[in-house]
Every structure is written in structure tokens, then in C-alpha cells.
């Protein structure tokens, strides 16, 4: 699961957002197919400028993953900086944030771990990189 997906996921029961991540295994997959592109064509830049990213989700996701990224992906991923508030296109740190976002949202994968709804502590497991969001029929009203 990428942080891009985490950014859109909310608890299907309580609509709590963002879900808390506890990761036990993560992976960095660098892919040439994901290289930042020029202008409008760049997906991350587009997400930022069209306000499709939920900044609280980005900040929350990075807070949850920071420790394990710094421990397990040492040497591969470095220098990710996520400001507390969403930067504007004319901020000096804007390009740097875009670079960080590119790695954080697209190239880091959570392989094993859990997603936790912080309002009722319901746990959704992540196994083999796929979060299990299945609900029991009893859980829905």
C-alpha cells in the first residue's frame, strides 16, 4: 500500500480520517515509470495544485512512518521533509516538498502492518501490501 492510497482511505465505519499506520515491513521501489514529469503532466504536482491531497493525511502518514523509514530504508530514502502546513507554489521550499512527496506517496510501500481507526480502535490488517478493508455484514447498520 502506498501513502497515496492511504491519503484517500478513511474508516468505512466511522469516517475517521486519517487512519493511523503501524508498519512492520516497508519497501522502497524506485521506478522509472514514476519519474516526475514536466508541468501539468506530473501527477504529484497536479495533486497539489488541484487540491486533491488531504494535507492532514500526508502529515499523519509521514509521522507514522518516519521512524521505520529512517531505520529500514537508510541509504535508500533520505531527506524527506514534510511541512506541517501545505506549501504554496511560490514558497521557496515548494520544489523540495514536491520531491519528498514523490518518494513518500509513490515509492514507499507498506507491505505488512495495520491501519487503525483512532475513534474506535478497529484494526484493518495490511498483508502482502494489500490492506484488508472488508467489513462484516453485522458491522454495517
Amino acid at each position: 500500500m502506498r501513502l497515496l492510497t492511504h491519503n484517500t482511505l478513511q474508516s468505512p465505519l466511522t469516517s475517521s480520517y486519517p487512519l493511523r499506520i503501524t508498519a512492520t515491513e516497508i519497501k522502497y521501489i524506485k521506478s522509472s515509470g514514476l519519474m516526475p514529469e514536466e508541468g501539468e503532466k506530473d501527477f504529484v504536482k497536479n495533486l497539489m495544485e488541484k487540491k486533491k491531497l488531504e494535507w492532514s493525511g500526508v502529515v499523519g502518514g509521514w509521522r507514522d512512518l518516519k521512524e521505520i523509514v529512517e531505520r529500514d530504508l537508510k541509504g535508500e530514502v533520505e531527506g524527506i521533509e514534510i511541512p506541517e502546513t501545505q506549501p504554496r507554489p511560490n514558497d521557496p521550499s515548494y520544489t523540495k516538498t514536491l520531491k519528498s512527496l514523490h518518494i513518500l506517496l509513490l515509492e514507499i510501500h507498506v507491505i505488512t502492518g495495520t491501519l487503525v481507526d483512532s475513534s474506535n480502535e478497529r484494526v484493518f490488517k495490511i498483508e502482502g501490501g494489500i490492506p484488508n478493508m472488508i467489513l462484516l455484514e453485522d458491522e454495517i447498520e
Partner: peptide, 11 residues
């Protein structure tokens, strides 16, 4: 990917 049943809404 995510594992989910569409009959129970969308997460």
C-alpha cells in the same frame, strides 16, 4: 490495491 466488498460502501 485494497481488499473490500463494494456492497458495504467504499472506504
Amino acid at each position: 490495491l485494497a481488499h473490500h466488498d463494494m456492497g458495504t460502501g467504499l472506504p
